[in-house]
């Protein structure tokens, strides 16, 4: 895949959170990620692995005191890091849209649903107030909110969680973006609503032809929705593969651990899980970041950090001793 062909190209991205008292925390440690136009890619990793930081870094909105120390973020060939703020603001919400996890806290409590969708249209599509409201109504219909004319005038606190999530999807897709970043978008919903909202999100992005970065902690969800899967651990991609290949032949011990956690076979879970213990002799930052929890660990893992390497068919993994045969 060439750089021109990808809609998003993140290369060697380092994000630091400096702290006065302790050592600087690196939330991203040289992360690479490419997304092709229209592609739906799942990014899976446990809490604290850097998923939200990645989403914010792409948008240039790393919360202080965080800083992007190094790396490239290119969107449709444009260098987002070199771009001036006004231009970037013009892209956000229009070409790069975000679906957020907690809409009832993140929607503005004093503006109606209609006003909030219309605001996006007003500022990004250059339409007038009346037209923007028409866009808002269309979007509410598109996300299949019942009684959209009435909901247009509802405030966020008057909506159920599922409905608020639909409103957020409406806001994200109002301008037909080229890239949608969904961060943990359905984690707050109960299972049936979650499935409905995910179906909706998938059909909407398909219809608009948007590429999607689908961030989640739940690897099972990605099996249904994504064409490619990336596994993130401690600020780095540790495995990247087409969905079929990934679920058929997961290569990284951490990926297998995540999958085993979903299996009903306790022996399998036990075989791939190991307590998180610091290892004597491993210097901080040296060797493989997953080593303390890895069941396949060998002396080389403590001395030398593995690089991301290709196993074949675009299947990449960051491990000295990847699992080659089906687990």
């Amino acid at each position: 895949m060439s750089a021109a062909a990808s809609i998003l190209d993140v290369a060697d991205l380092w994000v630091a959170f400096p702290s006065y008292r302790e050592a600087t925390i690196y939330a991203l440690k040289g992360l690479d990620l490419r997304i092709a136009p229209g592609e739906m890619i799942g990014l899976v990793g446990e809490s604290g692995s850097g998923k939200t930081t990645l989403a914010r870094a792409i948008m240039g909105l790393v919360p202080p005191p965080g800083v992007i120390e190094r790396g490239q973020v290119a969107f449709a060939g444009l260098d987002l890091r070199a771009m001036d703020e006004e231009t970037r603001r013009g892209l956000l919400g229009r070409d790069i849209a975000m679906v957020i996890p907690n809409p009832r806290a993140e929607l503005n409590p004093v503006l109606t649903v209609g006003q909030q969708i219309a605001n996006i249209a007003l500022h990004h599509l250059g339409v007038g107030r009346k037209e923007a409201m028409a866009v808002a109504l269309d979007m509410l219909r598109a996300v299949r909110i019942p009684d959209p004319e009435r909901r247009l005038h509802a405030y966020p606190h008057e909506l159920s969680g599922g409905m608020a999530q639909r409103v957020v999807i409406a806001i994200a897709l109002a301008c037909s973006p080229k890239l949608v970043i969904s961060d943990d978008a359905t984690s707050g919903l109960d299972v049936t609503v979650q499935a409905q909202v995910l179906d909706l999100l998938q059909s909407m992005v398909r219809q608009k032809g948007a590429a999607t970065l689908f961030i989640t902690r739940d690897i099972a969800i990605t099996a249904h929705f994504c064409s490619r899967i990336g596994i993130i651990y401690d600020g780095q991609i540790v495995e990247m593969a087409d969905t079929r290949a990934f679920f058929a032949r997961p290569a990284h011990p951490y990926s297998i651990m995540l999958l085993a956690a979903f299996s009903h076979n306790p022996a399998l879970r036990a075989r791939w899980t190991r307590g998180d213990v610091a290892i004597a002799g491993q210097r901080a930052g040296a060797g493989c970041a997953f080593a303390p929890r890895c069941v396949r660990r060998q002396p080389r893992c403590l001395a030398e950090a593995p690089e991301l390497r290709t196993l074949g068919f675009g299947h990449q993994t960051r491990c000295h001793f990847p699992v080659q045969a089906p687990a």
Binding site: L61, L92, M98, L107, H123, I171
Partner: peptide
């Protein structure tokens, strides 16, 4: 959270400030 969300939506600076 809602101001940070408004930022991710790329609303102009003065609109975010007004909110």
């Amino acid at each position: 959270e809602f101001i940070r969300y408004a930022e991710t939506c790329g609303l102009p600076r003065r609109v975010v400030l007004r909110q």
